[in-house]
Each structure stands twice: as C-alpha cells, then as structure tokens.
Design a protein around this nucleic acid. Structure first.
Lengths: 134, 134
DNA sequence: CAGCATCCAGCTTGATACTG
DNA sequence: CAGTATCAAGCTGGATGCTG
C-alpha cells in the first residue's frame, strides 16, 4: 500500500486531488481527456469495436497513437481488451463499467461543446476583431 | 459565414462533430481538456481569480503556459478577462456563463475519476503484474 | 487484421530574463 | 503584479517497414 503524494498533502481534503502536482489522478485525467483519449473513449461508448474500426471512427488518429492510447486506457482500467486467437486475428476493445461512467461524463462535455460551437466561433471573431486580427 | 468542414460532411448528423477530422469543436475540446486547460477551468469554477493566485492553485503550471492557456480559453469564450488599470496592475479572470456550464461537466468527470482512483491504481497493478512488470 | 520497432521533424514546454 | 520574449530540450506523433 503506497501512499500517493496527493493523499497526505495537508493542503487538500480530497484524497486524490487532481490539482496537486504529483497526483496520479492527473495522469489518468490526461489519458482520458488527451487529444486521442477523449475521442477513443467517446467512440467506444457506442459499443465494442475492433482496432481498425476504431481507427476509422476517430478520424486522423495514427496506428501508433491509437495503440498507445488504448494501452494507457487499458492499464487504467477504462478499457477492456479481448483478443481472439483466430486467423486473421480479431481483437475487440470495449469500455469497462468504470469506462462507461467516465465516457458518459466526457460525452456530456463533448456534446455541450458541440451544441455551443456557434457561440464559440462568434467569441473568436470578436476576440480576433478586437485585436486587429492577430 | 464560412462553413466549417464538419458541418457539410454527410457522414454525421451532428452539426459540429468532434470526431470529424477538421472540426473546430475538436480544437475547443482540446483547449478545455488539455493538460492545463482542464485544471485552469476547474480552478476558476471556485470563483474569479487573479493570475498568480491561479498559478498557485494549479500546481506545476508555468507562467507561460498559464498565460497561453488563458488566452485560448478567452478566445473561445470560456473565460473572461478583466484588467484594472491600477498600479500595481490587477487582472481578474472568471468563467463566462458558457464557461461555467463547461466547468461543471468537466468537474463531474474530474471528481468521478478522483473518487475511483483506488480502482484505477488497482487496475494498473494487475496490468503491470500480468506482463511481468514492464 | 492487429499490431510493434525505429527514425526523426517539429511542436510543446520549462527556464530565464526583461517590460510596464 | 502581470505578463511578454527568447532559447534549448524533450516529448509527441507521423511515416515507414516488419511480424504473426
């Protein structure tokens, strides 16, 4: 039982405070919200998916990045990897129960942003306009 | 009125589909969920904050990164910047109404992860153990 | 199909120094 | 206090080639 740095910091009352410098929760947050992590988790919320299927759904991700992302998520217990020893090989990825909970919260954020992109784009024009278009 | 790439893609029924390669919503998502973006937005949810105050709350962020992050968030209409021409200068940052909505969804995700870190750490040990501790 | 290994360009980041 | 400017370094991530 090691005690992560953030659990014995007097500063916070939260056991795993993501705002604390050396807290492992910060890593996990980055895995989940990272450039490819968020899209991968979001895509898997629609159901189990094979590697290349996932690659198609998450437009722009490379083999290497998807592989890396899936490993990190599997290690954190967000994603389950199920390989079948057939030929050609078939590997399915799916969210764990924790992964589903995480995905739902992440998708709530994503959808909210998607729904408000018009406002975001408007804000950008105002911002860029005010400063003479930097 | 430019038409963002993702709005006329036949593939998706969502106007701004974050899964689409060139959609601006992906940028905004990255600003909000990025390494420092998520922590900055989360910290600002507790109320308006001055620059160095924020820097102290988000442990580990550098001056430069915080400044950069705040600019991106301001441009996207997530954060409001209010400078008072006093001496010494005083600048307050606060979330916009949209920012508050975004922050709440983000914090729901963050808190859920914090609450489940024990499970995550356990999953890591299992994962690392299975493969001979890489 | 499902990946891993390697190489390397370039973007991100952190230190440091300086301004108003 | 609230930043901006500059520079070096390191990590990210894409391309390519190979394995089972």
């Amino acid at each position: 039982m090691e005690t992560p740095a953030c659990t014995d910091t007097g500063t916070s009352e939260q056991p795993f405070d993501v705002f604390a410098r050396a807290c492992p929760s910060r890593e996990t947050l980055e895995h989940v919200t990272g450039r490819w992590g968020s899209l991968t988790v979001g895509a898997l919320r629609e159901g189990p998916s094979r590697f290349n299927e996932l690659r198609r759904r998450v437009e722009g991700v490379s083999e290497k990045m998807l592989s890396q992302t899936l490993h990190a998520l599997e290690r954190d217990g967000i994603v389950n990897r199920e390989a079948q020893p057939t030929n050609p090989p078939r590997v399915d990825y799916e969210l764990t129960p924790l992964g589903i909970e995480v995905a739902d919260r992440l998708l709530a954020l994503i959808h909210h942003l998607e729904e408000n992109m018009t406002a975001v784009l408007a804000a950008r024009e105002t911002y860029d306009g005010t400063r003479g278009g930097r």
